[in-house]
Simulated assay, not measured.
Amino acid sequence: MNILMFTFKVLTICGCWLPISWTSRYKRIIYHVYTISIIFLTNTFMLSQLMDIVFTVNNTDDFTDNFYVMLAMFVSCCKMFSLLKNRNNIAMLINILMEKPCKPIEHDEIEIRQKFDKFVQTNTLYYAILVELTCAFALTTSYFRDYRKQRLAFRAWLPFNYSSPMLFQIAFLHQFTSLIIGSILHIACDSLICGLLVHICSQIEILECHLRKVVNKPHFLRECVTQHIYISKFAFMVNQKFKLTITIQFIVSTLVVCFNLYQMTQTSMLSAKYIQIVLYMLCMLIQISFYCWYGNEVKLKSQQLISNAFEIEWFTLDHNMQKNLLMIMTRSTIPIQLSSALVIPMNLESFVGLLKTSYSAYNILQQMRD
């Protein structure tokens, strides 16, 4: 796997991508057992919080304490099922990027791909550091605040009495492990989808590089037409395969930002819980901004293709080549637009709209409480 290598390592850690070197039957069985264990941990943690809302919660403060964490775990479970379901589709998308006409051939094209792939790796690393620091802060403060008082890190309904030391330690370890795994699942899925969006931008830039060479290498133009068609199809496939995941992420992000705003107004600014909420809010905003930012970049890059095509020395080309170039430019008049639920466009306007919707929902929640 020559692209998104760091992302696929994260996918392997969270049980969603079998290592290529593990070809023996026994290693495959071990990894499948590992995957099932990950599914069990994340889903049981999410269900314990859901059951707490159903059976135990009886006021607004308890509900908000539970709900935002439950939503994050719910999305992580959805992302894992999406990744497992789309393993063949993910391999197919990567193969498209690795084969002609999308495969870079010349040195300058390879440099473009490496530049974008390094950009994805750097962003994924910084995002992973932020998410894991947030989890580490939450679990460390919980250890000193709750563990010594025989309280769980997060509200949960369990089908057994965990008052005994051994059962309490098992329950606390279950929450600790599940939260870490859930955070890694978020990193894996977000970095994969955003990485694919970045590589769409990479393909458009490689196409522009091809177009600048058609004057001296006329045979490139036919390849450019084919490559442009493949880029559009590739973007459509990415949107189709992950549309449910992106939709759930948008809905949950709106709810989480709303409930985090509410919690921040009810918590002292000097407390560890306030810092935890702020860090969690930051992670959520960065998470959804990635989708909107890179979706917006794909749209801008595809629109910019027309201007770059105009810069070519048209009059030196024969009539057929001019027709092929016009074909690319005509297609580019309709930019590549990725969307959530095939309705809400993934761009910066949608990100601002999400913030406004969250704030409106927060005001409604405040009025209900008052």
Rank of each mutant, 00 (worst) to 15 (best):
M5I: 11
T7G: 05
K9N: 10
V10P: 06
T12Y: 03
G15M: 00
G15S: 03
P19Q: 02
I20F: 07
I20T: 12
T23K: 15
R28E: 14
I29T: 08
H32C: 09
T35Y: 06
I36W: 13
I38V: 15
I39Y: 04
N43L: 07
S48L: 04
Q49F: 01
L50K: 00
M51D: 02
F55N: 06
T56E: 10
N58L: 01
T60E: 09
T64W: 05
V69N: 00
C77Q: 02
S82W: 03
L83C: 01
K85Y: 12
N89C: 06
A91E: 15
L93V: 05
I94R: 08
E99C: 07
C102R: 08
P104L: 03
I105L: 15
I105N: 13
I112C: 04
I112Y: 05
Q114P: 04
Q114I: 07
F116Y: 15
V120T: 15
T124E: 14
T124L: 11
Y126A: 07
Y127G: 11
V131I: 10
V131M: 05
E132A: 01
E132Q: 13
E132G: 04
A136V: 08
A138V: 09
T141S: 14
T141A: 06
F144I: 09
R145N: 13
R148D: 07
K149P: 04
R155I: 00
A156V: 00
P159A: 03
S164D: 13
L167H: 07
A171R: 04
L173I: 07
T177I: 15
S178Y: 00
I181Y: 01
I184W: 15
L185I: 06
L185M: 05
L185N: 02
A188S: 14
A188F: 03
C189T: 14
D190L: 03
G195F: 08
L196V: 08
C201K: 12
S202C: 15
L207T: 07
E208Y: 02
K213N: 08
V214A: 01
V214K: 00
H219L: 11
H219V: 12
E223R: 12
E223I: 10
V225L: 05
Q227N: 09
H228Y: 11
Y230D: 13
I231G: 03
M237L: 15
K241F: 11
F250K: 04
F250Y: 15
F250I: 14
S253I: 03
F259G: 03
T265L: 12
S268I: 02
S271V: 02
K273M: 09
I275C: 11
V278L: 14
V278R: 02
L279Q: 05
Y280D: 00
M281P: 05
L282C: 13
C283E: 08
L285P: 09
Q287F: 12
I288M: 14
S289M: 15
F290M: 13
W293C: 04
Y294N: 11
E297L: 14
L305V: 02
N308A: 04
E311D: 15
I312R: 01
F315T: 09
F315V: 08
D318T: 01
K323S: 11
K323E: 15
K323W: 07
M327N: 14
M329W: 06
R331K: 13
I334V: 10
S339A: 12
I344M: 07
N347M: 01
E349L: 10
G353L: 01
T357G: 06
S358K: 05
Y359F: 10
S360I: 08
R369T: 12
D370C: 09
